[in-house]
Structures are given as C-alpha cells and as structure tokens.
Computed example of a mutant assay.
Amino acid sequence: MAHDERPRARVTMLIKAPAQAVFGAFIDPAVLAKFWLSSASAPLRVGEPVDWRFMVDGATARPVATRLVVDEHIAWRWSDGTVQIDLAPFDGGTAITVINEGFPGDQQAQVEAALNATEGFCIVLCDLKTLLESGRSAGLTRAKAQLIEARR
C-alpha cells in the first residue's frame, strides 16, 4: 500500500429490485430495522444527525447525511469515516456499491476497520437483497450480531 493510500471497504451487489426500493431501504427507519438496525431515530436527511442502534447490544452510531440524490446516491459521515452508496440500473434490478473510508487510527487500526466494514456491509447487502427480493430478511445481520455479542 502506498504511503498516501488509506484502507477502504468496498462492497457491490446486484439486487433485483428498483433503485427506489434500495434507496428507500437506507433512508426509512422502518425498513432499516428489517435488515440492519434495531432502530433509527429519523430518516436520513442532509445535515441532520440521526441516532442508529445496531443489532449488537450497545452498538450505536450517529450518522449525518452529506449527500442524497434520490434513487442514485447516499452519503454520510460517522465515527468510522464516510460512507458512499451508489445505485445504478442493471439487468432489471439495481447495482449497489458501498464504499466506507476515512477510518480513524493508525495504519493497523485502519486496515482492521476496513476489513470489518467490508464483512459487515457484505452481510448487510446480502440481507437487504433477500428482503427486497423475497419480502423477508434472512436474519443474516442478526446472526452476525449474535456472534459478536457471544465473543465479548
């Protein structure tokens, strides 16, 4: 890794659902609670912090949306740097790409955070895919949360 390159997480997935549904899933607290979070205090809105509670007991975040382009792009900053989600029509569905970067800490901490974020967003997108394509969460995020809690 070059000296000026910082680690980042990058995950892509094809979801056989319209971009409107994928976009809405990351904005709407009721949908977020079906595949990723225990709760969200409000929908994402640019410049307005929201409180997210994850399925891991005690895990929280306070993201602030920095850019929302309906059905195309979502971006926020939080304690783990920045997240960008890009949506594009693909093969009758939506290609989604999530990039999380700007992790705090030294090089080793950043690498570990990028690896954990890659795994986490992969699970989140797989659970979202299942939810939007079948109407039901597969419980993937919840299962990972149980493993994290058991290892504490």
Rank of each mutant, 00 (worst) to 15 (best):
P7Q: 14
E101P: 01
C126W: 03
L32A: 02
D127C: 05
R142F: 07
M13C: 08
I15S: 03
D71T: 08
N100G: 12
K16T: 10
T118N: 01
D91M: 15
E112S: 09
A59P: 04
T94P: 11
E149V: 01
A2Q: 11
R6Y: 09
H73S: 10
V69T: 11
P49G: 06
S41F: 11
A42M: 10
A25F: 03
A59K: 05
V50R: 04
A75H: 05
G92Q: 05
I99D: 12
P63M: 05
R77G: 15
L128V: 00
A30W: 02
Q84C: 15
A95K: 11
A109D: 13
V46R: 01
D91L: 15
D28H: 09
F35V: 04
I74C: 15
L37K: 00
C122V: 07
E72M: 11
Q20T: 13
F54P: 05
E101H: 10
R77I: 12
A88M: 11
I27F: 04
I148M: 06
D4F: 12
L128C: 00
L44Q: 08
T141K: 00
A113S: 10
S41W: 12
E149C: 00
K129Y: 03
A95T: 11
L14C: 05
G92L: 06
A21W: 06
L125G: 05
P7C: 12
I96D: 00
S38P: 01
C122P: 04
R8L: 13
A21T: 05
T97L: 10
M1G: 15
I99K: 07
P63E: 08
A30L: 08
A21L: 09
R62I: 09
N116I: 03
L87Y: 15
G102I: 07
A150L: 03
T130F: 06
A75P: 05
R53V: 13
A19C: 08
A9M: 14
V11C: 07
V111W: 13
I148R: 03
I74G: 15
A17P: 10
Q84V: 15
A25W: 01
A19V: 07
R136N: 04
E133P: 14
A117M: 11
A65D: 03
P104N: 07
F23A: 05
I15W: 02
A117H: 11
I15T: 02
R6W: 11
L131C: 00
V83M: 13
R53W: 06
